[in-house]
Amino acid sequence: MLLYLVYSVLEAISNAVYTTVTTIWSIEQDLINLMMSTFLFVLGIVCHPIMVIPTLLGGYYILRNCWYRRAKNPRLDSSVGGDGGLMAGARQVPRIPSYRSFTVGNDTFKDD
């Protein structure tokens, strides 16, 4: 009787572990299939002959904007226009003074 009880408990644990592993495995397989089919669906839309030209134009536009944004790097010195006013798009960045420009006050130690 005791042997049958131990066998039943071990069988139940084995079935529970097997069911859990197969459930996780099937969920993983379903997610992989969903990702692959979604990717292939999007790739099919993008590579459709009607969508090739807009995709190329969009990629060119994005790359051109990134290239021009990196190429024109405004300096703080050149942010003042010819008339003395600030140019459009230039930001005012507060500058921290050098440590040499700090003046020493009266509260320093003096050797008498």
Rank of each mutant, 00 (worst) to 15 (best):
I45M: 13
I45K: 11
I45D: 02
I45L: 12
V46M: 09
V46Y: 05
V46W: 07
V46S: 01
C47F: 03
C47G: 13
H48V: 03
H48M: 06
P49D: 06
P49Q: 07
P49M: 08
I50T: 09
M51I: 05
M51F: 13
V52N: 01
I53M: 09
I53F: 15
P54C: 01
P54I: 09
T55K: 00
T55E: 01
L56E: 06
L56P: 00
L57Y: 05
L57K: 12
G59M: 08
G59R: 04
G59T: 08
Y60H: 12
Y60G: 08
Y61D: 12
Y61A: 12
I62C: 06
I62L: 14
L63C: 13
L63N: 06
R64Q: 12
R64W: 03
R64T: 14
N65C: 07
N65M: 06
N65Q: 11
N65E: 08
N65W: 12
C66N: 07
C66G: 03
Y68F: 11
Y68I: 08
Y68P: 00
R69W: 11
R69C: 06
R69S: 12
R70L: 07
R70H: 04
R70Q: 05
R70S: 03
R70D: 05
A71E: 12
A71G: 02
A71K: 14
K72I: 12
K72V: 12
K72T: 05
N73Y: 06
P74W: 05
P74G: 03
R75P: 00
R75S: 15
L76T: 08
L76I: 06
D77T: 11
S78T: 07
S78N: 12
S79G: 13
V80A: 06
V80D: 01
G81T: 04
G81R: 11
G81K: 03
G81A: 09
G82T: 11
D83K: 10
D83Y: 03
D83V: 02
G84T: 08
G84W: 03
G84K: 08
G84P: 02
G85S: 14
G85F: 13
G85C: 09
G85P: 00
L86T: 04
L86W: 10
L86A: 12
L86P: 01
M87P: 00
A90Q: 10
R91M: 12
R91H: 04
Q92K: 15
Q92V: 15
Q92R: 11
Q92E: 05
P94D: 05
R95V: 15
R95M: 12
I96T: 11
I96P: 01
I96E: 13
I96Q: 11
I96R: 08
P97C: 09
P97G: 07
S98G: 13
S98D: 15
S98V: 04
S98E: 11
Y99I: 15
R100G: 10
S101P: 01
S101Y: 09
S101W: 11
F102W: 10
F102E: 01
F102R: 03
T103G: 05
T103C: 09
T103V: 13
